[in-house]
Simulated scan of single mutants.
Amino acid sequence: MATRKIPMRKDVLTNKMYPKREMVRIVKDKEGNISIDPTGKKPGRGAYVGLDPEAVKNAKSAKILEKVFSHAVPEDFYDELFDFVDHQKARMDLFGDLGKKH
């Protein structure tokens, strides 16, 4: 059986490449609202963040997402993103790759 190509994306917080399944998509829509996109299908300008809660903490102080989206990002969004990333990382550590088909 042929090996499948794994789609890779660059983490905007660390500038490292990771498999798309191990990342969280953040999207800015036409109205300028920034939100977490767990499905990866929301319309708008997207950016990917790895499952590293420490990188999210550093991004909050360095205002990295403001630079990426050229738009103001509310302080509470960083807290929401931290909680989401921390939860996803815990799930990944506990269950492994949830996207694998057996």
Results as ranks from 00 to 15, higher is better:
12 V>D: 06
64 I>W: 00
81 L>C: 10
31 E>N: 13
57 K>Y: 02
32 G>W: 04
18 Y>T: 14
12 V>F: 00
55 A>Y: 00
100 K>V: 10
69 F>E: 00
81 L>H: 05
41 K>C: 04
28 K>L: 07
96 G>S: 01
53 P>G: 12
37 D>I: 06
21 R>Y: 09
79 D>Q: 08
66 E>I: 02
63 K>Q: 02
94 L>K: 12
1 M>D: 10
4 R>I: 09
60 K>E: 14
89 K>Y: 08
35 S>K: 02
23 M>F: 05
84 F>H: 15
41 K>S: 09
45 R>T: 10
54 E>I: 08
74 P>C: 06
43 P>K: 13
59 A>Q: 08
89 K>N: 09
3 T>F: 13
102 H>Q: 10
64 I>K: 15
30 K>L: 11
63 K>T: 06
92 M>W: 05
62 A>G: 10
93 D>R: 14
14 T>R: 02
48 Y>C: 01
14 T>F: 00
16 K>Y: 03
43 P>H: 03
14 T>D: 08
42 K>E: 04
73 V>H: 01
14 T>Q: 10
64 I>V: 11
98 L>P: 06
17 M>A: 08
29 D>I: 02
35 S>T: 13
102 H>I: 07
89 K>R: 13
51 L>W: 00
97 D>C: 11
66 E>H: 10
95 F>E: 11
9 R>Q: 06
61 S>R: 12
21 R>S: 12
42 K>T: 02
94 L>I: 05
33 N>I: 11
7 P>G: 02
42 K>G: 01
34 I>K: 01
69 F>Y: 10
43 P>R: 06
11 D>S: 13
32 G>Y: 05
47 A>R: 03
58 N>A: 09
68 V>G: 06
18 Y>V: 12
73 V>Y: 00
22 E>G: 13
35 S>I: 09
82 F>M: 01
60 K>H: 01
58 N>I: 11
93 D>Q: 08
43 P>L: 04
20 K>P: 02
84 F>K: 14
64 I>H: 00
17 M>Q: 13
15 N>G: 00
55 A>S: 14
10 K>W: 01
52 D>N: 15
59 A>S: 14
26 I>V: 15
65 L>G: 09
10 K>G: 01
13 L>E: 00
102 H>M: 13
11 D>M: 06
54 E>G: 12
20 K>Y: 03
5 K>N: 06
91 R>T: 10
89 K>M: 10
64 I>T: 12
96 G>P: 03
1 M>H: 08
86 D>R: 15
99 G>A: 12
73 V>S: 07
3 T>V: 13
79 D>T: 14
86 D>T: 15
34 I>Y: 00
58 N>M: 12
11 D>T: 04
29 D>C: 09
32 G>I: 06
27 V>F: 06
17 M>W: 12
2 A>Y: 10
101 K>S: 08
20 K>A: 14
86 D>S: 15
1 M>G: 15
84 F>M: 05
31 E>S: 15
76 D>M: 05
92 M>K: 14
24 V>L: 14
8 M>V: 14
32 G>D: 02
38 P>H: 01
15 N>H: 13
15 N>E: 07
59 A>D: 09
75 E>C: 07
18 Y>F: 15
29 D>G: 03
94 L>N: 12
99 G>L: 10
94 L>D: 03
89 K>E: 04
32 G>C: 11
97 D>W: 04
40 G>N: 04
26 I>D: 09
91 R>D: 08
38 P>M: 07
70 S>P: 01
75 E>R: 11
4 R>F: 03
